[in-house]
Write a protein that binds this DNA or RNA. Structure first.
Length: 415
RNA sequence: GUGGUUGUAGCUCAGGGGUAGAGCCCCGGAUUGUGGUUCCGGUUGUCGCGGGUUCAAAUCCCGUCAACCACCCCA
């Protein structure tokens, strides 16, 4: 017996219905980004492993699909896009007017355990503004992320934006006597505040010369801790989006390279997952490409957002409605095989008029052909039989029909 | 890396020592030119894999692998 092959662990097949769902998500991403004046770009799927080590350190290698190529180079399937973007932006920094507003939809690979909302291969929407240090850029990205969610059909009952500011924390820590060398440790404690046991957190804070109480007080202070946050809020207020945003200083994001405002799109009702996240990274382009270029951006993966759409009735209806719109315009039913040549000629004419047209490749009973037309989502069936060139055109939705010369069908249907 | 749950038809699952089951899907048909319903018929299984107990194992026991969920991590 021949071996049966399956996908590699964490990888996915996209059968037509899966592909339709995926493309719907892509369409929303692309549509909203374009509406905000972003331009699409793309980079290589394979990069030197060093590019990722430079940004994240050696420990990242355990999470990479990396190997040696035939030329002896250490290469990796990309786990994220930001380093590539930083390289591209730095390389052409004089070729484009600032700010750059770029987005990308691509496939990424991470060698990690497969579980709900997480695979070894996934798609991600990346959206970044480079060359603009004002918080107006941060606000623009947050607004875009809100409109993405609305375009999927979500409302303020379904999601919110959690906004924070890394600099508020680093200022706080510096004033409290935390040294530059301990800053990463400090941020990690904040990042884990909600997940870690209080005793453990307290112990770690103690070694930094801080108390849990002072941290909680600072978080309680909210937007007052950061002029940036206030400015971003008033920008979003002006867009009528203020209600989507809640200041939550406990968000710092795991990434080491964030330098200012950070935010997450958060699902409220279905398990409190982060659907998207991002922030400001003013030093990264310098680190990767040796060019001064402040930047901020965010990313959204396809797996969590698709799960969330599926679990949210009104968002799922929107998806289903969008998918069901696609399908054939016309199915040509061949009722008399003597007329097959005429039928094929008609099919071709309809297609040249831009109508998505199907027909039976081999002889089949008329009833079966109607069934096939139905299943292909066809809006009309055209019956070609002994009367040809006179044909019967039937609207499948309401079973109404009329007769018409073959040469007039395209015109009638397109009118 | 740690823990839990589950492995039986293409899918969802039932059964629980004695000939392998249901629903769905798929295919065909209901007198040869009209579709979503209905009715009839049909295909598919080393019951995840390996060992043990037994006259007999899909069923009980041990091991193993895989999938899923959670933790760790999360760019």
């Amino acid at each position: 017996m021949a071996q049966v092959f399956k996908t590699l662990k964490g990888f996915r097949d996209f059968f037509p219905e899966d592909c339709a769902t995926r493309n719907y998500v892509f369409d929303v991403w692309r549509r909203v980004a374009v509406r905000y004046g972003f331009q699409e770009y793309e980079g290589p799927v394979l990069e030197p492993t060093e590019l990722y080590k430079r940004k994240s350190g050696n420990e990242i290698v355990g999470q990479l699909f990396c190997f040696e190529d035939k030329g002896g180079r250490d290469v990796s399937m990309r786990p994220e896009l930001t380093p590539t973007l930083a390289r591209m932006a730095a390389a052409k920094q004089r070729d484009y007017k600032k700010p750059l507003k770029w987005f990308s939809i691509g496939q990424f690979f991470r060698y990690e355990r497969h579980q709900k909302g997480r695979g070894r291969e996934f798609y991600q929407f990346n959206c970044d503004i480079l060359g603009e240090e004002s918080v107006a850029a941060d606000a623009e990205l947050i607004a875009l992320s809100i409109d993405l969610m609305r375009e999927f059909g979500f409302t303020s009952d379904d999601f919110s934006i959690r906004l924070s500011d890394r600099n508020a924390w680093t200022d706080f820590a510096a004033e409290s006597g935390v040294g530059e060398d301990r800053m990463t440790d400090f941020l990690q404690v904040i990042d884990k505040l909600e997940r870690e046991k209080p005793e453990v957190t307290e112990e770690k804070l103690d070694s930094l010369g801080l108390t849990l109480e002072s941290i909680r007080d600072f978080i309680g202070g909210g937007a007052a801790a950061s002029d940036r946050i206030s400015a971003i809020q008033s920008d979003l207020d002006a867009r009528g989006m203020g209600d989507f945003v809640q200041v939550d200083l406990s968000i710092v994001r795991g990434l080491a390279y964030y330098t200012g405002a950070v935010f997450e799109v958060f699902d409220i009702g279905k398990g409190m997952r982060a659907v998207a996240g991002g922030g400001r990274y003013d030093q990264l382009v310098k680190l990767i490409g040796n060019a001064e270029m402040p930047a901020c951006g965010f990313a959204m993966g396809d797996m969590v957002i698709t799960d969330l759409i599926r679990e949210t009735a009104h968002a799922n209806e929107k998806l289903e409605a969008s998918i069901s719109e696609s399908g054939l315009d016309v199915f040509v039913v061949i009722a008399d095989e003597e007329k097959r040549t005429d039928a094929i000629r008609l099919v071709q004419e309809l297609r040249q008029n831009g109508l998505a047209t199907g027909f039976p490749l081999t002889p089949a009973k008329v009833g079966k052909q109607f069934q096939n037309a139905e299943q292909a989502g066809a809006k009309f069936a055209v019956v070609v039989g002994t009367e040809f060139p006179e044909t019967t055109v039937k609207k499948l939705a309401d079973r109404s029909e009329f007769t018409c010369e073959a040469t007039e069908i395209a015109g009638r249907l397109l009118a």
